[in-house]
Amino acid sequence: MTERKILLVDDVDYTRQLLRNNIMAICQSGKIRNKNFTFYNAGKASAAMDLFSMQLPGMVFLDIELPDASGLELLKKFKKLKPDCFIVMVSGVSTLNNVKQSIADGAASFIAKPFTGDKILAALRLYERYLAQ
């Protein structure tokens, strides 16, 4: 099975870890088909940009509120570098504007914090459907 790269971008270390643990738990539970993910982590926009350019991941969980830049700006740069990248925006503020702006800038999905298993599963299932297209 193809190895898929996932980049997790959030400035809180344990939040990235929480996300990674739960993606892995969902993979192991058999709720999605793909089980072979490699994870990359970044806490800042600058580090995320470097990692993205080097690894060109297939999927990104991208927090909108980063300490050194807006996640929305980063989203545009990522989509320019790799237009088929599946990017899930993550934010504590799920206003219609935030959601619409994310979609307009090329995001595939949107997770409103706090994280739950159902939200993460929904994003992963959508990614699988996207890959199957």
Partner: peptide, 16 residues
């Protein structure tokens, strides 16, 4: 719909 529980490892909770 049955919900998918969020897995929180004890060491991560500790960190938080």
């Amino acid at each position: 719909k049955p919900s998918v529980a969020l897995v929180i490892a004890p060491e991560l909770m500790q960190q938080f």
